[in-house]
Design a binder for these strands. Structure first.
Lengths: 203, 203
DNA sequence: CAAAAATTCTAATCCCGATTAAAATAATGC
DNA sequence: GCATTATTTTAATCGGGATTAGAATTTTTG
C-alpha cells in the first residue's frame, strides 16, 4: 500500500502511452499519426486511449510536458554536479543528449505547440522559456568564472539547444549511433563555448 | 513576350502562396493552420488556393521543395566563393541563415515529411540527404586542407544543420534580432570547426 | 469593345479520424 | 466465489476542415 503515484499500474501504462505517442509523432508527423496508430503500438484499440487522456490535444500536451520534464532533470543534474559554468554546460548537453538517444526517450519534437489550447500552450511555452533562460545563466556563469569565452549568451544558447532539439530528425534508434552521439555531441557543441586563443586561425 | 517561367503572374502569386503557407505552418503548426488561414494571409478565399496547388499535401510539398532549393542555393554560393573548406562552411552558414531570417524567408520547418505521399516524401528526403552530404563534404575538405580541425564529420554536420534548422522556432521576424543572428551565428557555429589549440582549457 | 482566358468566389458535399456511449472483459479485494 | 472496480472493446456518431462544381468576376487579347 501507499503506492507512490508513479508506481500504480495506471501511471505505468500512461507513461508507456506517452512514449508510444512521442515515437509516432516523431516518425510519422503529427497529422500523420492517428490515435489508432498510437494504440497499435500498445496492442490496444484507439478508444482505449481515452481512458488515459481526455483527447488528442491532451496527449500532445502531456508528451511535451514529459519532454520538458526530462530536459529539466538534465539541467538540474548538470547544475548539481558541474563546478564551473563550462562544466555545467557540458554536463547539461551530455545528460540531455542521453535522454534524446537513450532508453528514456524518445522526446517528442515540439512542432505543434501553437495548436495546443491556450492554457496548455502557455504552460509549455513558459517552461520552455524558463529552460532556455536557465541554460543561458549557465553560460553566463561560465563567462564570469572564465571557463567560457565571451559570447552572445542568447544566441549561443539558441544554437546549442537547436542542435540538441533537432536530434530526433536524424537519429532513429540504432544503438551504435546512440553511442557516437553521446560521445561526440557534448564535446562538439561545447567548442562554441571554449575561450578562443588570440591567434586562432580561420576566417 | 517569352516571359521566363518565373516571371508570369501565376508564378509570382504561387510564390507568395508558398511564403504565406510557410509563415502559417511555422507560426501555428501544421494541424493548426487551415487552408482558410493561409488564404486570409493573401486576401483570398480557401477555395482559390486550389488554383495554385492540387491539395494541402501538395502545398506542404512545395513549401518544402522551396526550402530545399533555398538551402541548395546557399550552398552553391558558398562553394563558389569560399577558398578553404572552413571558408566555404562559414559562407554556407551565413547564406543559409540569411535566407532563414531575411526577406526571402521564412522557410517552413520540415515537420511533416512523413505524411507526404510516397513520391514527394522520397524526393524531399533524397534532396535533404544530398544536402547534408554536400555539407559534410565541405567539412571534410576543410579537414584535408587544414582549415578545419579533425572531427566527426557526420556529427558536426548534424549539429550545425540542426542549429540552423531550428531558427524558426525562436526567431519571429523582428529585424533587430535578424541582424544579430546573421552576425553571430556563422562565427558561433564555425567555432565547432576551428582547429583546437593543444593547450585549450575547459572540461 | 467583345471574346477568350485567367482568377476567384459561393455553396455545397464529403470524408476521415476524433470522440462518445454502452457493453464486455479483466483485475482486485473481501 | 462474489461484488466491485479497473480496463478495454464494439459500434456508432459527429464535426470540421479539405475538396469540388459551377457561377461570377477580373484580366488579357485582338
Amino acid at each position: 500500500m501507499a503506492k507512490t503515484v508513479d508506481e500504480t499500474r495506471f501511471e505505468l501504462k500512461r507513461h508507456r502511452l506517452l512514449k508510444a505517442a512521442a515515437t509516432c509523432f516523431n516518425q510519422k508527423g503529427y497529422s500523420g499519426t492517428s490515435l489508432k496508430d498510437v494504440a497499435r503500438h500498445l496492442g490496444l484499440t484507439d478508444a482505449a486511449l481515452y481512458y488515459y487522456v481526455k483527447n488528442k490535444e491532451e496527449l500532445v500536451y502531456q508528451c511535451y510536458l514529459r519532454g520538458a520534464e526530462l530536459g529539466r532533470e538534465a539541467m538540474e543534474r548538470a547544475r548539481a554536479e558541474g563546478k564551473t559554468g563550462f562544466e555545467q554546460a557540458y554536463l547539461y548537453i551530455h545528460y540531455h543528449v542521453e535522454v534524446m538517444v537513450g532508453e528514456r526517450g524518445p522526446v517528442a519534437i515540439m512542432s505543434e505547440i501553437p495548436s495546443l489550447k491556450e492554457t496548455h500552450r502557455e504552460e509549455i511555452l513558459q517552461i520552455s522559456r524558463k529552460h532556455s533562460s536557465e541554460f543561458e545563466k549557465i553560460i553566463q556563469r561560465g563567462i564570469d568564472d572564465g571557463s567560457v569565452g565571451p559570447c552572445n549568451v542568447r544566441m549561443t544558447g539558441n544554437a546549442i539547444m537547436g542542435a540538441i532539439n533537432w536530434i530526433p530528425k536524424w537519429f532513429h534508434g540504432d544503438v551504435e549511433t546512440a553511442d557516437k552521439v553521446l560521445k561526440e555531441f557534448p564535446a562538439l557543441l561545447t567548442r562554441c563555448l571554449l575561450p578562443l586563443k588570440p591567434d586562432a586561425p580561420g576566417q
